[in-house]
Design a protein around this nucleic acid. Sequence first.
DNA 1: CGCTACACAATTGTCGACAATTCTTGAGTA
DNA 2: TACTCAAGAATTGTCGACAATTGTGTAGCG
Lengths: 227, 227
Amino acid sequence: MHIENVLLRPPVTASDRVLLEIQKAIVEGSIAPGSKMSEPELAKRFEVSRAPLREAMARLERCHLIERTPNAGARVVTLTPQGLLSLYQLREELEGLACRLAAENMAEDEITELRDLLNAHLQTQRVREGESYYQEAGDLDFHYRIILGSKNPYLINILCDELYFLVRMYRVQLGMNGPRVSRAFDEHKAIINAIANRDGELADLLMRRHIGASRQNIEIQLQNKGN
Amino acid sequence: MHIENVLLRPPVTASDRVLLEIQKAIVEGSIAPGSKMSEPELAKRFEVSRAPLREAMARLERCHLIERTPNAGARVVTLTPQGLLSLYQLREELEGLACRLAAENMAEDEITELRDLLNAHLQTQRVREGESYYQEAGDLDFHYRIILGSKNPYLINILCDELYFLVRMYRVQLGMNGPRVSRAFDEHKAIINAIANRDGELADLLMRRHIGASRQNIEIQLQNKGN
DNA sequence: CGCTACACAATTGTCGACAATTCTTGAGTA
DNA sequence: TACTCAAGAATTGTCGACAATTGTGTAGCG
């Protein structure tokens, strides 16, 4: 049920397929941060020509997973405290806006679905206590739906296609499975209520806090790792 | 003095050159909104192979100037009231954030330069009353510097590389040269003062208003055109 | 007359090879 | 020993041709 790629079509072309594979590899760290992305090497490894590979790399750059310099090649991004801060500053603002717009624009049945989703996640969460993947998937699902509910195509594009892979990369590589889980559920519930009441201002505020708390959580992990 | 492409390198490669040419053509309307972007045709017209052309088109999609569908090709975007609204909703939020961050992070000499810039524009504005190009360039220059002053790389990328070409496209194709010019200068001045006083909250608010006013201005033009 | 299905044309996606640029290595010199 | 510079190797950028897919027009059928 996890919405993997919102605006990205099902991998119809070879470039799409390679993109998904490399995205996964980078997010999960099996291609190490900072490592060089050699076109001949990757082309051979994923069994495609360099043409679709380069197309995929262009899209990897678009979602900030790699950095290219002309005539010199590309490297996987490295995770830094400053980068995390910059990313979450943006997320707070953008997802706050998304919430406000969702409170105005979401259809009633979309809100109902969102509620059902949260309940379903609460069930699986109790059963599979601590399995961080499901929890992460559930959280992303929740955020995705609200973002889509904003009905603002540019906002959707930026958050779902360009920023969220990096968010996932930070989470996955820092191993997010702390005690924040149950609190996050409560926060999600409050946000849904605000949206259902069409209180955009409150939904905005709650989402900003929610993301702010999430950032603090990750910052702690990052500092622990640094020491 | 007009900062054309902030993060885009000088056109070192053929793909870069073609990108700049097509960007200009689309923004200025010499390639009509909604028209089909035929790869063979464009490749011949701009005297490159299809490889760099496709790379350029990938980047055009990134800044929302064209829309691609796999195996079917690309079309130039069409300007709509909804699109304008979505775009400016985002801009308000993002440039507000940029202002707040700029108030925190801009160096003193950067602020001084910004002041000088505004004064210089005021001079040329008096001389060349009504020449909308300079006025538009001046306005963009102002916004660019503040965005850069935020020191948030993701924010800079989104605004300068992905959204601003569309903003320009709306302005240029709707012929923005109304009576808003002098008011805009005053608003710019107030924003600079807030930044210089390190009052991020006020700078944020003023920028949101400034952009909101700009949106209303364009909306009027768009409605006039619709009738 | 309208609809479906097939074949053809045109366009997009992919491939392998060549050109241009950058990185590396090692010789030479101060 | 440290530095400069040049030649070689490797990588990226570009090209032209082929494969795969989509759109179109036409013929056939209901």
